[in-house]
Design a protein around this nucleic acid. Sequence first.
DNA 1: GCAGATATTCAACACTGATGAATAAAACCC
DNA 2: GGGTTTTATTCATCAGTGTTGAATATCTGC
Lengths: 214, 214
Amino acid sequence: MNKTQTPARQATGAVRRRGRPHGHPQTKARIVAAAEPLFLEHGYRATTLRAVAAAAGVDSALIGYHFGSKRGLFGEVTQIQCARALDLTRAFTGSREGLADRLLAVVTELWDAAEVNRLAVENEEVMRAFREYLEGEVLARLAEYLGGHDATRRALAAVTLIGGLIFTRYLNPLPLAAALPSEEIRRTLAPALRAALAPAAGGPRTARATRPGV
Amino acid sequence: MNKTQTPARQATGAVRRRGRPHGHPQTKARIVAAAEPLFLEHGYRATTLRAVAAAAGVDSALIGYHFGSKRGLFGEVTQIQCARALDLTRAFTGSREGLADRLLAVVTELWDAAEVNRLAVENEEVMRAFREYLEGEVLARLAEYLGGHDATRRALAAVTLIGGLIFTRYLNPLPLAAALPSEEIRRTLAPALRAALAPAAGGPRTARATRPGV
DNA sequence: GCAGATATTCAACACTGATGAATAAAACCC
DNA sequence: GGGTTTTATTCATCAGTGTTGAATATCTGC
């Protein structure tokens, strides 16, 4: 007659009474902490909310309550990592000559340390954030740093290369690109990045900059 | 509100008897044809097998029967497009001097024409195929074409830039990169790609690069 | 103490992709 | 040209997903 025999057996096996427990004031943080390794190991799709809830020792409905949706939780988990992994401020302080090397150093350092590898590409929201950051932040600031009427185009070329580095080494890692030590990667890409950043005067084709920077 | 009373009402509304119908010998092709626009418009995740089956006017179980799984169907739909979009053979026939320009031309032409934009990044299988192609095919052949002991490194730099182009313009398009006409993109990236392909001797930026690749 | 806000639990819901049993159509064999 | 086998299709159902609403327990302000 009664289907609810086990009153509240969470995955941990610990029996918890209904209602708000006394000793767990920050469930939200615990959910995030539990979700992070799961997302990192299994990716977005394969990580279920029930698994997260079980790992955190909470009811799965709490995720919806605190984060609205699975997307909200993922956004909460990766937002900080994304922000941390994309902070290029350091590269923009210093001489113009070492800009390419500083950019490569910052990118490889941050992304080597970041644990956002591979999984972000699955999530539309993260990709959108990444896109907006790459264009609205990196490209814009880089163009401003470079200056000149051709700055936007040079910044675009640089962002393309940097995006390719992040893509082929971290988000969708080619075995070769991922295996090389970062110092070697930097040395490999430095000439191309310097060429991308260099004013087009020395190039074979004169670049008629028609578009004022947007 | 789905009580499943109507015995066999497919999406078309046409009542079909059980068993193999006489006039539809190529259901497989029809499923692929119906799936393609759906995948392209809504992406992988948001396209349900039931919607594909309804659009094709067949039972949803037929997809499993013919393609094994949703992945199988997606692979069937995108495989040809991927192969079509990644055929770089043309770029490898010709003089060494124009290599960079030919590469950029082929990549932009093929990807501008391809309709694989944006959705491929959602699917792990497509990304794996793309990865393997980029490293196993493009990079390997490019290194062979370039020759010399430094060839692999230069090819890697070039592949990084090309991958960045595909990523920031097609797979996860930055507004600016996607808005520019392809001819301008080519002009923008040409110097960097030439520098990537050039036999850099490791020096900072000196013109020791006149030496042809051994 | 008590009213309202907040957090938590439970139970369902609508869907999803997948699969097994039953069956009709076609092909094949002699 | 009937009998058998193979293939294609239908139907029903499964386990599992993210999400949501109702009920309940705890905390907070007065």
